[in-house]
């Protein structure tokens, strides 16, 4: 469902952040993108989610060539993805409920149906009791869980998380990864970027697991 063919990405006035990368991701895969800081992990995720366009090579998402898509079609492409960012990108002047509501509103889902799905998503990450709280009042781990709820509420086929455990202590980190693994178990493609491969990944996931290790923008074994 996601296919990279000799993809390179060069930011204006910079070097190749991604160099000549080829790989394939199938529905239901659990993919880890690993590598040191600056290796190109975030860039790779942005290429997958249609937030950046490749400088050369082809990116196919559901058999659509991202480079050939019209600008107006890009928002629709993005709705296939649930994204969780390095820096949350939560809306700090709206409460938890309203934050999770945003992707549904964008998809034109409003009212009772929306409220039901928002509460289900908050419940899944253990934040139902905080639906009226502002994100500022949440701990770092709770903010990350809120970001997960927002990413999954529109039931995306692909979940992308950029260093979701970046600045959390170990217990929280295991927590967050647990949530993400649970979505892989119900058929969602889960793509996680992190510096190193996490410890103790459950046995039953290892066969669907893929590791893309980046070094200076290149794929290495």
């Amino acid at each position: 469902m996601i296919k990279f063919d000799r993809v390179s990405k060069r930011y204006p006035g910079s070097f190749d952040a991604i160099k000549n990368i080829t790989f394939e991701i199938n529905q239901g895969d659990l993919v880890f993108v690993t590598g040191a800081s600056g290796a190109g992990k975030s860039t790779l995720l942005k290429l997958i989610a249609g937030l950046e366009r490749p400088t050369s090579g082809t990116v196919l998402i559901n058999n659509q060539n991202v480079s050939q898509l019209k600008a107006a079609a890009i928002p629709y492409l993005r709705r296939n993805f649930g994204l969780i960012f390095q820096d949350h990108k939560l809306l700090y002047n709206r409460n938890c409920f309203e934050n999770v509501a945003l992707p549904l509103h964008i998809n034109g889902i409003l009212g009772e149906e929306a409220a039901k799905r928002i509460r289900a998503a908050l419940d899944k990450v253990g934040l139902l009791s905080k639906e009226k709280s502002m994100p500022i009042t949440l701990s770092g781990g709770e903010q990350q869980r809120l970001a997960i709820a927002r990413a999954v509420v529109s039931r995306p086929a692909i979940l992308i998380a950029d260093e979701p455990t970046g600045n959390l202590d170990e217990n929280y980190a295991t927590d967050i990864l647990g949530f993400l693994y649970a979505f892989q178990q119900v058929g969602v493609t889960v793509i996680i970027a992190c510096h190193e491969l996490p410890q103790n990944i459950p046995e039953n996931m290892q066969n669907a697991m893929k590791v893309l290790h980046l070094q200076h923008g290149e794929l290495s074994a």
Binding site: P75, R78, F81, N93
Partner: peptide
């Protein structure tokens, strides 16, 4: 620009 960026990333036109 934070909010607009967040909405953009969530697939808003």
């Amino acid at each position: 620009k934070d909010e607009e960026e967040a909405a953009l990333v969530l697939g808003a036109s």
